[in-house]
Structures are given as C-alpha cells and as structure tokens.
Design a protein around this nucleic acid. Sequence first.
DNA 1: ATAGTTTTTGCAAATTATTTGCATTTGAAT
DNA 2: ATTCAAATGCAAATAATTTGCAAAAACTAT
Lengths: 138, 138
Amino acid sequence: MAEKLEIPKGYRHTKQRKAILEILEKAEFPIHAEDIYLKLKENGMDISLSTIYRNLDMLTKEGLVVKSYMLGEDKARFALPDKKNYLVCEKCGKIVIIDNCPFDKFKEELVEVHGFDITGHSVEVYGVCPECKKTNVG
Amino acid sequence: MAEKLEIPKGYRHTKQRKAILEILEKAEFPIHAEDIYLKLKENGMDISLSTIYRNLDMLTKEGLVVKSYMLGEDKARFALPDKKNYLVCEKCGKIVIIDNCPFDKFKEELVEVHGFDITGHSVEVYGVCPECKKTNVG
DNA sequence: ATAGTTTTTGCAAATTATTTGCATTTGAAT
DNA sequence: ATTCAAATGCAAATAATTTGCAAAAACTAT
C-alpha cells in the first residue's frame, strides 16, 4: 500500500524512532502521541513520552507526518500524509480516511481565484456514519 | 454580508458576550482567544481571559462559532462558520478566506462512497501567496 | 423601581498537553 | 574498540485552557 517509510537522512536509526514509525504506518487514522505511547507499552517497549513528542516533531518538520486537531479535541493527532483527509462520525467518533480526496481537483480553481501556489491541504468532514444512522440514537 | 448574529436563547446579554461576538463578526479570519482579549483591551474594555474562553466554548457548542487549529500552531482559533475554510501563506502567514468552498460540490460524492450523512466540513489549504511569490525569499 | 433568583464574571489556583535542561546512553564513523 | 554527536529518559518548566468560588450583573416577577 504505502511506500516504505524511511527515517530521514541525517537522523539515527534508534529503536524508539523505528517503533514510532511502525505504529504510524499501522494506524488507520490520525492518533494522539499518547496512543503511540500506550501501544508501545502494550508491545512491551518502555519509551518516554518526550521521546515520542520529539520524534513526532521532527517527523512533522521533515514532512513525513502530518499533525492535526480533530473537531472538539484539544490534543494533536499525527498521521502519515495519506491519512490526513478524513470523515468523522459525530455520534460514535469513527474515523474513515478519504482516499481520493476530491479536493485535489480544485487546486486549479483556487490557484486561479486567489493566486496562491498550493502546496498542501487538509480536510475534515463530519457527519453521521451509516451504522449510527441505523441505530438511530437521538 | 453576514446575517445578524444573535446570542442564543436562554443566555443573558452581557456586555462581555456582545463584545466578543462583535470582534468575531469583524474578524476577517479565525483568531485566537488572546487576540480577542487584546482587541477588547485596546477598545478600553477590561475583560478576563476566562470569560472569553467560557463564551467561546459556549458559542462553539451552540454552533455559532467554529474552533480550529492552524497548521503548525498549538493554540485554537475561533471564527464564524463562514470563515472556517481558508488559505494560509506558508511564508508570510497571510490568511485568505475561501468564499465559495468548492468542497460543497463533493458532499454527494462522499455520501455515495462512504454513506455518511454530512453535516459539516473544514478545509485548510496552504501554499504561497502571490506577494510572497514575487518577493521570492528563499 | 425593587427584591429575589440565577447566570455570568473575575481572579487565582488547577489542569493538561507539550516542551525543555541535563546527565546518561546509544548509533555510527573511524 | 574508541570516539563523539545525536537521541533518550526523567523531572521540572511552560503555555493554553479550565475550574472553584465569591462578588457582580441580568432577568423575572412583584
């Protein structure tokens, strides 16, 4: 699926760093720093939260990871760039990645109207997922 | 332009609350809680930050205001819903509102593909603005 | 207007995510 | 194996946001 993720040049291959990247690769949607911490704990790895934050920071600056905040949340989530556009269910919180983001088709329109050179975008769509529509909880 | 903004039913019309809404109405793009604080200070009003946060919180829950986090920032911004889709210049930080968000046209596509009932979305696009392209700073 | 009731405010203290300093450990180059 | 910069862990520091509580302001009904 995703191209193999490499630790950027100039940085060391530590086991913590590799483990963090692995978690991010496996994640199906943007997750919190603490989620990474907990998953690594589960896997028996003892890592410190600050190491996780420092690595996420580095990875974000290097462009391998995208940081975002979900509606109504106050802590950051991190994900590989191909998971940055998503749908969120307002009822159950389920997150579904938007694979072929239709927004891409509109870059040109935005360039024409506003004159920006566009380098990226992030889209969050919220609504009610099919399951929650059935289980019509008020 | 914008429909007149009303304090939601059941809440009292305090001068702080009215002042906060006024700032939000005048703002051209999403702003920080502290920006509101500072602008009100300028206007000679003495208000507390917690009052601002409490009101923004209430307004957000009531749906009159949208809270968001800009790329690379770690503090929340608040805006009226019609200012929630925007372009940001990576060089100078300029923010330009996307007026007729092209994303609207894609709701149907997303509904079909994912089955969600869509209630809202927010789009952040980043790039380089026309001015910064000219002043081609490295 | 006035008194009573309830919300809202302001302040200070608390909370929470995230960052940072520093001593120690580790990866990579020699 | 030795060396040295980069990375880690821990504890302490920060910064945004939240909360408790007493005082002040808004509504309400008189």
